[in-house]
Amino acid sequence: MTPALEATGLGKRYRGGWALRDLSLAVPEGRVVALVGPNGAGKSTLLHLAVGLLDPTHGTVRAFGEPVRQAGVAFMAQDKPLYDGFTVAEMLRFGRTLNPGWDDDLARNRLAELEIPLRRKVGRLSGGQQTQVALTLAVAKRPRLLVLDEPLADLDPLARQDVLRALMSTVAESGMTVVFSSHVVADLKDTCDWLVVLNRGRLQVSGDIDELVAGHRVLRGPVEAADAIADRLPVIAHERTDRQATLLVRSAQPVPDPRWHEHRVDLEQMVLAYLRDPGSSALPRPALAALGKDDRPWSG
């Protein structure tokens, strides 16, 4: 199947240096993708490349096998593209005029379900409602791929939940692929099924969330036995006292040594461990082959 989003050797250099380097990934269609990373990791750069608002310095990015500008991709920027002085109805007319594939019924039904009055000025809506309007403008273009840059960043917990509920309903109805960036992992646990972790402009993790979580485990055992584990398995994080070692390892199989007590890792714990150790990565094999061995400390 053609990936919904595919990047090969993607790099972007600004005057200040590389914002993104040597990134290769493929996201299957119908996924809800969490793009995670600290500030300055290159998340916004990647998203702008993915929607064709930036041109890559190196490599290519395609959506559904086509150049991204032609592929039915919609984007919601972090500073939501709304005009405070417009009414909601005027924003809809604006969207209709600019977009040939615009679905006006979908937009109106969605706003009616959310109880957002069409005659209200955008500037007088709550932050959550403004996000819902911006999201409606993106969804009404009927994109196959919807890209959202920090859609939840300035919302209170209740509004975040409302936005996520509406977004998930739209995904259930349309089957579209969604990529959204966030630095709050808790928001992503139940909504996303694919994880992409960026750190310092490099790709660290790309994969199915259930498989990633099932493929990592926390081991606790005697400190003198820790090196033997580290020789056999990629260790993402470790803590040691004089007697006890706690290791986060990447392994789909239990460790057969009875001295090690093991338990499951949760998504947040796993993401934080990768972010703390930029040298670690968990990538599918084709992407690995594309990475330069010399400039990539690979712990596996």
């Binding site: 119908g30 996924r31 809800v32 509406a166 998930m168 259930a172 139940d190 099924d193």
Partner: peptide, 17 residues
């Protein structure tokens, strides 16, 4: 319940349902 009903209530991924 349909996947849409469930996700509209729980804010979870439809693929999970």
């Amino acid at each position: 319940p349909t996947a849409k009903d469930v996700v509209a209530r729980l804010a979870i991924n439809p693929n999970t349902v």
